[in-house]
Design a protein around this nucleic acid. Structure first.
Lengths: 341, 341
DNA sequence: TCAAAAGTGTTATCCTTACACCCATGT
DNA sequence: ACATGGGTGTAAGGATAACACTTTTGA
């Protein structure tokens, strides 16, 4: 029972981001809990097959199965990328496909944001739970300064990988490493999440790389279980790549579209807004300049209501002027950095 | 012979942009010339099916069929979007599919840029030719100031469409019209090409809208032939939507990635660089400030060689410092506008 | 009274925008 | 000489980045 030539199965995978306790978290599912009931360390993103006979659009399909898999209603959603490379595509089992070994799977990745920082259920549907993205990309969190794992583990390993190649390739690899991991005076660019993950994958440092290699050789390797904490928690299939794409896209989009407000509740303080931007961008921001910048954009409106729950002086509550989306959807928030290096 | 449930056909469509005589042109094909040999006014983008059994990646597949259909070797290529909405998908005939009426088609759109402004062949492969994008989106060209067709045709038609709805909807529509077409002091945002095209489609002003409507009703409408020049040349299938997406993406990307140089030859003058940016962005730029901005980015290097072919004083030739891509891929060219309104 | 968090003021510096103006070539 | 396009100088105004400082609460 081979598939018709030219046909593929489309898998939809969604990066669902929310804020919990001032930390950015993503929705993950344990595929094994859902199907084989075997324990496994590698989680996945909520995902499911696209059914061309019943689903009118990708977005409708994905809203439906995220609700089914995790009991979450999505707010904002946007497409991020379509992955079709052979060898890195999702194994059929991950999607519960009914045609084992039959066709090729193409993943359409989506980014979704859910508002309301307060009462996020810890574990929602069967096996669904919120995980801080820092678990998957520890090197991406620069809020407390340059993460120590970069210089203690990542760069030495990458350097060994670079040195193993012929001189010309080695120099090109070193140049990528320098630029992506802010070496030798290069500045950290928080948007390049995917490129950094791809570099680690290429260098064989991402646990998924070893799995994909052995799979290509015919040995049906299980999803990786152990992993070096500095190199992040691996995920099934190509889900960590999709997550990296989503996080990078969100970090970039923050700056030119008012998407950050899709993660906030109806009202918020400027400090909580700043902590949200910091949690997503992974950089520390300059408090005073952040406030001034936000007020200059006119995207928010003070409510002259104060929240005394914050510990110190009560903070004024603001709301997002959502009505501006119709006329000025093309403004975002700059990142007035703290600590320039 | 119905397809397996959950399977679809993937069509790859590519927006290929080049510069000819200081104008931005896109590669188009006449599908009818290739198959039925019937004359038709509606061109399409170079496109073809993705064969999961033979194509390792989307990009390899698309480079192959663009070369086959138009004799062009692509340089830079990036994915732009994947379109899967029912009712606006490509009819099978457009792809030469072998399973009439069988499945659903999902279009993966790509943007490709080809360098070398000089000797572009006029018509390359069978039925392939370069068309200025202004033919498809006349309202997007603001280089000579606000295009007259906006106020003489487009806005009045859109206003009639808005007025036909209930008061609440009508006000929301007017708000979108104002923001997208720079009415009442709103400033023109050259990046929002897709949103403007979608507005015209929704309002029934894009010729493709009538075609899709009658197709949904079962009447097998032909691709539209006549069209109002102010509303642009229609294309087959959803190709004009893909083109709008590509143009918008390119206009945005210019500003934060050095992609514009993928359209230039090995050496160029600053004026020709400016004319290229203007042709793509559709806005007039301030000459002196453009030069200063380019030089400050350090993306180009003067060669101390002069080109006397330009008419006046000979212009210095520059080259793109391509080696910077490894370390600083995240800089682009700002748009120092001329004529702020 | 002190810690903690909110919020204000001020300054040097850089970038943007807008002017006016000079330079080198072909006809 | 003058038209044409290439190229420079300079100054106002706004944004950014970096300071130090005051205000209001709870413990």
């Amino acid at each position: 029972m081979s598939p018709m030539t030219g046909q593929v199965i489309i898998g939809l995978s969604t990066v669902v981001v929310a804020i919990r306790d001032h930390e950015a978290v993503v929705l993950t599912v344990r595929p094994d809990d859902l199907r084989t009931h075997r324990a496994s360390a590698a989680p996945g993103l909520p995902s499911g097959p696209f059914d061309p006979d019943h689903d009118r659009t990708f977005e409708l399909a994905l809203r439906a199965f995220v609700t089914a898999q995790a009991g979450i209603e999505l707010g904002y959603a946007e497409q991020i990328y379509t992955f079709g490379d052979k060898g890195r595509d999702a194994p059929l089992a991950d999607l519960g496909g009914s045609a084992p070994g039959a066709g090729r799977i193409v993943s359409v990745g989506y980014l979704a944001l859910t508002p309301g920082t307060a009462d996020l259920p810890e574990a929602t549907g069967a096996g669904a739970l919120w995980s801080p993205w820092t678990r998957f990309f520890p090197w991406e969190d620069w809020r407390e300064g340059r993460p120590e794992v970069i210089d203690s583990v990542i760069v030495p390993d990458l350097e060994r990988w670079a040195a193993a190649a012929d001189p010309v390739t080695a120099e090109a690899r070193r140049s990528r490493i320098r630029g992506l991991f802010a070496l030798d005076g290069a500045r950290w660019n928080e948007e390049r999440v995917l490129e950094r993950y791809e570099l680690l994958y290429e260098a064989g440092l991402a646990a998924e790389a070893a799995r994909d290699r052995s799979r290509a050789l015919g040995t049906d390797a299980p999803e990786p279980e152990g992993f070096h904490p500095a190199l992040g928690q691996p995920m099934i299939s190509d889900h960590r790549r999709i997550l990296a794409t989503g996080l990078g896209r969100l970090r970039g989009k923050l700056k030119y579209r008012p998407v950050i407000f899709e993660l906030m509740g109806q009202t918020f303080t400027l400090s909580s807004l700043q902590r949200t931007v910091e949690a997503v961008s992974g950089v520390a921001l300059h408090k005073q300049n952040f406030r001034r910048m936000v007020e200059r954009t006119d995207l928010v409106e003070g409510l002259a209501v104060f929240d005394a729950e914050t510990g110190g002086r009560p903070a004024e509550l603001f709301r997002f002027r959502r009505e501006l989306l119709l006329t000025r959807p093309a403004t975002g928030l700059a990142l007035p950095m703290l600590r320039e290096g």
